[in-house]
Design a binder for these strands. Structure first.
Lengths: 231, 231
DNA sequence: CGGTACATTTCGCCC
DNA sequence: GGGCGAAGTGTACCG
């Protein structure tokens, strides 16, 4: 990894065209040749960047650029597309290189898969008498998160989201359309389950006869005795 | 901006729980106190981070940690939530600080807004005799990108995307449902316009009687004489 | 390899 | 500030 702090301007062409006026910034060149251009604020997203696979070439400025005070010109060309990032460096305030090696990577816990696991184990949250048919029930257009039966034996399709918004309702609607064409399953009722359900999503779901269930992650995890999973 | 290259491990708790085993990485502390933890690969997204507003505190390791070779402990606490990032630093290989100042920011050109602008100006691409009613036609559930009339005077609702996939068809379908309830507009026909239309989206659109129009951005920009907008 | 769904999404707009 | 749609989204998963 190479770190450079320098006055620079940049120009990106590819999926869009973008221009970055001259300012002092951090440039990071990673081992795979990818480049990040960071300012001293904002978020984790760089102002400009080039994702791998790409190749970086550095050259001297031409006479006109040298006249403007440019000391180096970097061209980062994406290998698989026309995406290109051109950086003109002026004053270089810092430069260093570091051998980092490969990274063991991040270990995560607590996402949608876990919600699904917990709800499958606590299927009674849907109402008394509910039984689990199976998780990840495959259909032609993708897997239904949970398929269950209610006390009367009717099929229930459940879509689980961390944040429930309109897209999730649309997704469940497509599954329901398909499942209801199967005479062995029909009629299939839908339940939209999420830690948080957006008002517009709730309105759409209700309008389509889809039930809404707000999941309390902490409470569900509390019931599950395998609480301390990773840490 | 402060740059540190060090052996470190990290633990994030908040919306999820994540653990980063010990390895040599780049730590970036921005002027607003936000922290990025980068490996020497992947993409522009850090392995771990804390977004502003947040506060960073550094302290000496306790006896147990010191025993494990920890030399510094960083705690980054988000100001508005329970999100917290804890970093243990072992060997520090590089450390430097830089005053970058504020950034003038990025100037963009050529996204969906531009496609919309161009299609509004070249509404004839929909077919002879089409006329523009207006762009960003507001409805209760959001703005329709372009509303037009065809040669027969019938209303046409157009949804524009750079990449046309299923979500865009769903979005246009919702608009059409709503617009067709307005007797002053009905019957409203739909056109899904995009630089690229995914096969599945095309099938869904066709099945619903929605027309598909592939937009040639370069050709449309060529017609537009205000070609050289920014550069 | 293409398509889909997820993300500590982030970002920007408009109400 | 909340809601919603777009992103140069990136990324994993699954066919």
């Amino acid at each position: 990894m190479r770190l450079v702090v320098a006055d620079c301007s940049a120009r990106y062409t590819g999926r869009l065209t973008a221009m970055l006026p001259r300012a002092k910034r951090l440039l990071v060149v990673k081992a795979d040749g990818s480049v990040l251009l960071h300012s001293d604020g904002g978020s984790y997203k760089p102002l400009n960047w080039m994702s791998p696979p790409c190749s970086l070439s550095m050259r001297e400025p031409d006479a006109e650029a040298a006249e403007r005070g440019v000391t180096q010109v970097w061209t980062v060309q994406h290998t698989k597309s026309d995406d290109r990032l051109e950086i003109e460096l002026h004053d270089v305030h810092h430069e260093s290189a570091h051998d980092l090696g490969i990274d063991p990577g991040l270990v995560k816990d607590g996402v949608e898969a876990h919600l699904q696991e917990l709800l499958a184990a606590q299927i009674g949250l849907l109402g008394d008498g509910h039984t689990l048919v199976r998780r990840e029930y495959m259909t032609a257009i993708g897997p239904v998160d949970i398929l269950a039966r209610d006390a009367s034996g009717a099929t229930v399709a459940i879509e689980i989201k961390r944040r429930g918004d309109i897209d999730g309702v649309e997704q469940l609607t497509r599954y329901l359309d398909l499942l209801n064409r199967d005479p062995l399953l029909a009629p299939v009722r839908g339940v939209f389950a999420a830690q948080e359900i957006k008002p517009q999503a709730r309105v759409l779901a209700t309008d389509r006869g889809i039930g809404c269930l707000v999941l309390d992650y902490d409470a569900m995890r509390g019931v599950d005795d395998v609480d301390s999973r990773l840490f």
